[in-house]
């Protein structure tokens, strides 16, 4: 019950697993192919801008999940990276007239840089303090965005041009943009998968499970955590940059703490520490926001209720439960 009670080990966040056996790899290959198929078919059935929004938030949650699910670090400040990248990409595309790939690159670089600063400070404390520090620093970024000139305060950056990819492919067409977003999303997802299942990812899990022991084995835990934080911030930034192109606006909502809460909610609903959980969670949370939008603050209430229910009775999330039932890793 107290911090000094070391006898009862705290229930670990996310699955505890070793490296991937061959048959698991084959399943993953099939699942990734299935996901790719779904992404190809989805816009034929559902409004493509909606699917693109789902993909952006799924990527945002995947980035957050890298930190919580595999390093056990709960960041309450990921909106800072998401929103900052959206602003930078929007500014670069609109004011500097850069092509979308360069604008995205700048956005990712900005959020990764920000992640380096925030991460270096936050990993100096552990557990709940880590969460509070990330939240506080993200709030500082929010106030910065509120006052800075280039973010245009309450108005945000509006009418961001989607531009032409590499100066050739016009992305103002929803379908062209869809293909671009889908490809980037799949590439990012595979990269995250690779990171998690690499030796680097294994060390990360070791640190999560027992930090002093990992340190005693010679791993520099702080550097691993910082590297993960920067990666997570970078991918969250990628999600924010893509979102800026899809919705063509970057506003204070993107850097507000409630956006950090959204990443947490999506991950929690889908399943912390699962590969596909954030994607399932994103479909649910974004659909709920879309369909309940006219009910105003009831969306907030519903999100709160989902938080409470998930924490009390559904900690594994949808994909987590599915994985347990099917006795496989998802």
């Amino acid at each position: 019950m107290t911090a000094h009670d070391a006898s009862a080990p705290a229930a670990a966040i996310g699955p505890t697993s070793a490296s991937l056996p061959r048959e698991a790899m084959a399943t993953y290959r099939l699942l990734f192919l299935g996901l790719a198929g779904l992404i190809v078919v989805a816009p034929l059935v559902i409004y493509p801008v909606f699917v693109m929004t789902v993909l952006c938030f799924a990527l945002f949650a995947c980035a957050f999940n890298l930190l919580l699910g595999y390093a056990g670090l709960l960041s309450f400040g990921h909106a800072a990276f998401f929103g900052m990248a959206a602003y930078v990409t929007g500014h670069a595309a609109k004011v500097w007239g850069l092509t979308p790939e360069l604008a995205i690159l700048l956005g990712v670089a900005a959020s990764a840089g920000l992640g380096l600063v925030v991460g270096a400070l936050a990993i100096r404390r552990q557990g709940i303090y880590f969460s509070m520090i990330t939240l506080a620093l993200a709030q500082m970024v929010f106030f910065f965005c509120l006052q800075a000139k280039f973010t245009h305060g309450e108005d945000g950056i509006q009418a961001i041009p989607r531009g032409a990819l590499f100066g050739v492919i016009d992305l103002s067409d929803d379908w062209a943009l869809y293909v671009f977003i889908a490809v980037v999303f799949m590439a990012a997802l595979l990269a995250l998968f690779r990171i998690v299942h690499s030796p680097f990812g294994q060390v990360l899990k070791a640190i999560r499970e027992n930090e002093p022991r990992a340190i005693s084995l010679g791993y520099d835990a702080a550097r691993y955590k910082l590297a993960t934080f920067v990666l997570s911030a970078g991918f969250a930034g990628l999600a924010g940059s893509l979102k800026a192109l899809v919705s063509q606006i970057a506003t204070l909502t993107d850097v507000h703490w409630s956006m950090s809460g959204e990443a947490i909610l999506i991950t929690l609903v889908g399943g912390v520490g699962t590969v596909f959980g954030p994607i399932v969670g994103s479909v649910i949370v974004i659909a709920m926001q879309n369909y309940l939008a006219q009910l105003g603050a009831w969306v907030t209430v519903a999100q709160g209720v989902i938080f409470v229910v998930c924490v009390l009775a559904f900690r594994e999330g949808i994909v987590g439960v599915l994985a347990r039932r099917l006795k496989m890793r998802l």
Partner: peptide, 9 residues
């Protein structure tokens, strides 16, 4: 997370 959810509600 629980108390965050309660605050939202």
């Amino acid at each position: 997370l629980l108390t965050f959810g309660l605050a939202l509600i």
